[in-house]
Design a protein around this nucleic acid. Structure first.
Lengths: 226, 226
DNA sequence: ACCCGGAAAATGGCATGCCATTTTTTTGTG
DNA sequence: CACAAAAAAATGGCATGCCATTTTCCGGGT
């Protein structure tokens, strides 16, 4: 897991970055729920570091939009409303669509083969009903496309937004119909790749991600009612 | 100037945020040149605050991609190469295209009137040869469209990238041909707005921004040779 | 003159302590 | 008992100091 705005190869990990990584993880996993307070001294004692690196980490998480810091009132975990998921995925869809376009344009036989490979594995998992493996491969494919676009700015921007979008692991909760549709959309993307049709790839992928955003929004909405 | 990932209305300014704002400004204005070292104690003395808020500010600037921090080696201002401008504008173009699409879809008579107003003023400046005023209005129009898209995630992401893109004020250096073309592209966008053609608006605006990115890249390239 | 090694200075990372503000608890009064 | 005011505790913001690592400088040997 890198950290800078553009994916840096190496970066000796300084206490503050560790703390930030730990907190990000807890928020994404839901161990820290929205509106939970984050108290510097408490964390300081728990992680056995001083408050200084904690404070620096909190600033970073605030910049990532995961927490909110109020003057003299401390930090709380940001909320994650259904509407926010929709807004996030509206932007994410644009970014991934751009990545799909660029990947198609620069596609080499090797990259296409790797994609066919990943896609095939995902289909196997899906047909065999291994839902967890299917979702893992799904994530791998999305990440592979992003990573292959050769634009570090896009990669970093996407990663930052995905951290917020993934909060709570709602990605794995889908209705069966949507799941079939998602698989079909992946297949459409592969066909666009094979055809070298960048425009088609871009449109298919943007639609796919918007659908995903809508699905997640629905899940969040139904949960917030309960 | 806001700060969070999503534009927050108010946020009592804590020392660290001030320092960050000051440094951002200096980097964008070029007072701090690429590869310049930023020494905590020196800044501490100059701004008359302790090193603690300085350190927090530096972390934020690193997350924004404006500086690079190496363990025990301090912070230096990031470089800004021609290729980076191209990569930045590739992403920015996608974001502004999305904004143009959404603005068209939700366009009210009032918003259209304001846009016509801004556009007309920009044309006046252009025809009268008031280049500075023209560029100011240009920026105002771009920002207005972004602000009008009703997606805080998009707004924040765009702003963060624009800070990097604007470094050095190269936006105001353009060949006359490109300037005419840019004006024509703005006019095309206005027509798409009038027609309520979201697809057209999106495509026109994406093209416009890619052209801008290419122009800036050329300027940067020619400068780095000198 | 050049290079190398070690000492000195510079610099960043973090711990700690003090002060300001906020939040919670206690206490006095009707 | 209710409510308000005041005191106490909690908490964040920042200054300062110490240690580790890096960088710079300087003298001696070839």
């Amino acid at each position: 897991m890198s950290k800078g705005p553009d994916t840096k190869s190496e970066h000796a990990t300084t206490g503050a970055e560790n703390v930030a990584a730990i907190l990000r993880d807890r928020i994404v996993k839901g161990e820290l729920a929205p509106l939970d307070r984050i108290v510097e001294r408490r964390l300081s004692a728990e992680l056995m570091v001083s408050r200084t690196p904690i404070r620096e980490a909190l600033k970073l998480l605030e910049a990532d939009g995961l927490i909110e810091i109020n003057l003299h009132r401390g930090a709380i975990v940001s909320e994650y409303r259904p509407e926010e998921a929709l807004l996030l995925f509206d932007v994410i869809a644009s970014l991934e669509a751009l990545a799909a376009r660029r990947v198609t344009e620069t596609m080499t036989a090797d990259v296409l083969r790797q994609l066919e490979d990943l896609h095939g594995t995902m289909l196997d998992h899906h047909r065999a009903g291994r839902t967890n493996d299917y979702f893992d491969m799904n994530t791998v494919i999305h990440d592979f496309i992003i990573k292959s676009c050769a634009n570090p700015v896009l990669i970093a921007t996407h990663q930052r937004l995905m951290i917020r979008a993934r909060r709570g692991r709602f990605l794995a909760i889908m209705k069966p119909e949507r799941l079939e549709q998602a698989v079909a959309e992946h297949e459409d993307l592969m066909q666009a790749f094979r055809d070298g049709n960048a425009q088609q790839a871009s449109e298919v992928w943007e639609t796919h991600l918007r659908h995903t955003g809508e699905t997640i929004t629905e899940v969040l909405t139904s949960q917030s009612v309960s």
